[in-house]
Write a protein that binds this DNA or RNA. Sequence first.
RNA 1: GCCAACUUAGCUCAGUCGGUAGAGCAGCUGAUUCGUAAUCAGCAGGUCGUCGGUUCGAUUCCGACAGUUGGCUCCA
Length: 617
Amino acid sequence: MADLSAAELLTQNYPKEAKVAIAARWQGQLYDLAAQLSATATPEPVLPGDREALDILRHSTAHIMAQAVQELFPGAKIAIGPAIEDGFYYDFEYERPFTPEDLPAIEEKMQEIIKAGITFNRKELEREEAQACFAAEPYKQELISELEGPISLYSQGRFVDLCRGPHLPDTSRVGAFKLLSVAGAYWRGDENKASLSRIYGTAFFDRKELKEHLRLLEEAKRRDHRKLGRDLELFLFHEDVGAGRVVWLPRGMLLRYLIEEFERKEHMRRGYYMVQGPQILKRELWEKSGHYEHYRQNMYFTEVDEQAYGIKPMNCLSHMLVYKSKVRSYRDLPMRMFELGTVHRHERSGVLHGLTRVRSFTQDDAHILCTPEQVADEILGVMNFVTDVMDVFGFDYTLELSTRPEKSIGTDHDWELATEALLNALRKSGRAYEINEGDGAFYGPKIDVKIKDALKREWQCATIQCDFTLPERFDLHYTAADGTLKRPVMLHRVILGSIERFIGVLTEHYAGAFPLWLAPEQVRILTVTNRADAWAEEIKSALVAAELRAEVDLRNEKLGAKVRDAQMLKIPYMIILGDKEVDEKLVTPRLRNGENLPAMGLNQFISRLTEEARLRK
RNA sequence: GCCAACUUAGCUCAGUCGGUAGAGCAGCUGAUUCGUAAUCAGCAGGUCGUCGGUUCGAUUCCGACAGUUGGCUCCA
């Protein structure tokens, strides 16, 4: 049994860099230790915001919150309370769920605890002693029963928690924190287990960092595509349509059309055939493919004339039939088939979220059938495709390899081959990647591409899946050079993923201010008085003739009001027309950032915009 | 699907401790022709998400359903 002081803590158990950072944070009282460490270790990594130090701070804040909750709500049982990406949470079981109204009181109690500067003490106990210690805490009991050896506990005052540590020296070290929200959660993330009440919060070493974090949260709210979708008149959801299904408004549909046209052209350039299948296919076909067995709970079904049909949740089946429509030779491979295919998946109601998680969506889907030897090159080709497209939209991305899940079809041998093929392509790409064990599709492993938006949030868009199974089930083959019949390999892949999700992410990425080539309305012509109406109409005609998207605002409104309306729609260019411009036949463009360009001739303006749209920046 | 909260005019929101509601913006009409983020005035707009229950009476209380939001789980 040992009390571990802050000083000892710094010499134990976690990375040197973190210790140095923590020592620096606490240098007021731990100056000598920090100096000592700096003498033996490298002093460089003393950085504000060091990840480990921040995690320790947040985890300690979670303990403080748990103490506050137990003091305010006697009988509340504690479950777990880790630090997470942006803060921390703690799960509780209580006679009622906590509500946002509870948070101020908890915060106040936490402030008291922080002010009191209570020391965090570490103790190590044998399992039986620890069990006795948590007689009133069933969740802790369960955790202890699974632990080996001496069990470490941390206490601050009368509050004791099972914990690996480390922690701050004392509670006063919490510089700034805020409780953010309450939510439901399950014990151990299992929906069959107890339902707990979770409180989320965040903490930082100083107030400035907290303020900046809260500002980022506000910024995310301002950029929320659900709000922008309404404000910019892009799309709507309607309860009479049903949850998770989008109705596209004119401006949003135009944006979508522009992205889809871009995609069609890019696929044509890269040797894809455009194909298309129907929305519903006989149930037997889904049984043959394995979808009925493995994906049925997510599918919609219908029956007409005693024939059962499945509404497609994926596009692959028609593509298989395209392949089978004639005898294929090795000379035909690789065969790449592309479809902007709308699929319908019965996602559980609770997961729906704006455009990023819907029940009907369109994939920029393609299936590549190739020889086993071609697989690696095809995967690399797709990865290059992804890079090119993401560059156009200004997204950075990360790669993940997902391996065989528990529920899957196909032989071990095929899974190994497919996984190896993807791994090879990843290695060849030279990019860093992570591995998600057991996260693959039921028919094959996959490479997932996650893009980061402007607020550094990650979204899965592109995915490349390697499939040996469907060609088998559909008995696909090609005639090899030696005249024998061979089985092709199939790659499933999307680049943007779901057009809906991509537009949602793109909207937040640009905060609704789409680059010129994607802006539904590129130019709005504003008149100061109705003496400029004729010139305005003439300009609009010329712009439209040059395939630019322009509108006029001839309303009997003050210029300020017209500017404001155009500004709120984030239209890239405004043209302001008063008597001066009419007399000299000029246009004076105003950018949406408020900057005014010098007056120029109409043709010059058209060239400028045409070039800007062509560059897609 | 589960836990929790929410749903009042096209939008953003007040309000009714049970006696059928109000503002701003948007819309329409009129006046105003005014140079870079909101001109003024008037008018119109709601069976208070839907369906049941309790009640003399429900937008308000209760229940179911639908939808939305934050999480959990799942996923493009």
